[in-house]
């Protein structure tokens, strides 16, 4: 039964000055889905994700979130509409404590996690709540960045390479969190270079090359073609 997609992108072009970074991207994410963007460096994954968030503004095309065209909506309004952002460098504030980092973004829906629930799920954050944000380890910062958007109750998470450079044990934890989000009905669009990891969390995958979507695969196909995809990605 096809539901109306939560995010629908039609014919999206993105530019950096004269250079075109995205060419006619079409993409949909249904509510409750976990979708990954896969592709080589420079394929346009981050530009696409930043365009969805409103951090990259030089775009044309259609960008529908819950049926509403948001292509001209400023980033902070998109966040309040329910898009939750986790930046590739984690985007933890050094000048804010761990707890302040958590409390900074406003609550946007009744799905928001209470602070207690966040601390229960991420005990390490509770222990370091008064510490400066960037005194945490890389993995802990990633936890913080994800916890921060969970606390807002964002209906759709945008994660830019959440596992990059992290130890396997942390990667597993992040996988658990993503599955937990999915179970509770959350939607996730993430960039993932780790094909094996992607196959364990996602329902569908978009393969990007040179600014365009070249293939859309469900998880079964994706798992079957892992070797080929790894080669494509140059890994």
């Amino acid at each position: 039964m096809p539901e109306a997609p939560m995010l629908e992108i039609r014919g999206l072009d993105a530019f950096y000055g004269e250079a075109q970074a995205l060419r006619g991207v079409d993409l949909t994410v249904a509510e409750g889905e976990v979708v990954t963007l896969v592709g080589r460096n420079g394929a346009g994954k981050t530009t696409l994700l930043r365009s969805v968030m409103g951090l990259h503004r030089q775009v044309t095309g259609e960008l529908l979130f819950e049926g509403r065209d948001i292509v001209r909506t400023p980033a902070h309004k998109r966040a309040r509409a329910g898009l939750g952002w986790v930046q590739d460098d984690r985007g933890v504030y050094a000048s804010l404590t761990v707890e302040e980092n958590l409390l900074l973004p406003p609550v946007v829906s009744d799905r928001a996690w209470a602070l207690d629930k966040v601390y229960e799920a991420f005990p390490v954050l509770a222990d370091r709540r008064r510490a400066g944000g960037t005194t945490l380890s890389g993995g802990e910062q990633q936890m913080l960045a994800i916890a921060r958007v969970l606390r807002t109750g964002a209906r759709m998470l945008l994660l830019d390479e959440p596992t990059e450079g992290l130890a396997p044990v942390i990667v597993r934890q992040i996988g658990d969190i993503i599955r937990q989000v999915k179970e509770s009905g959350g939607t996730v669009l993430l960039i993932e270079q780790n094909v094996k990891f992607a196959a364990t969390v996602a329902d569908r995958h978009y393969l990007l090359a040179q600014g365009s979507v070249v293939e859309s695969l469900d998880n079964a196909e994706f798992s079957a073609r892992q070797a080929e995809l790894l080669q494509h990605l140059g890994m």
Partner: peptide, 23 residues
């Protein structure tokens, strides 16, 4: 909270926007 927002905007303004702060 005002101070928190100002500090966040000072440190990384675009990120604060993405987190729902109207910088």
């Amino acid at each position: 909270r005002i101070g928190m927002i100002v500090r966040a905007s000072t440190e990384r303004s675009d990120l604060a926007q993405a987190l729902g702060i109207n910088v």
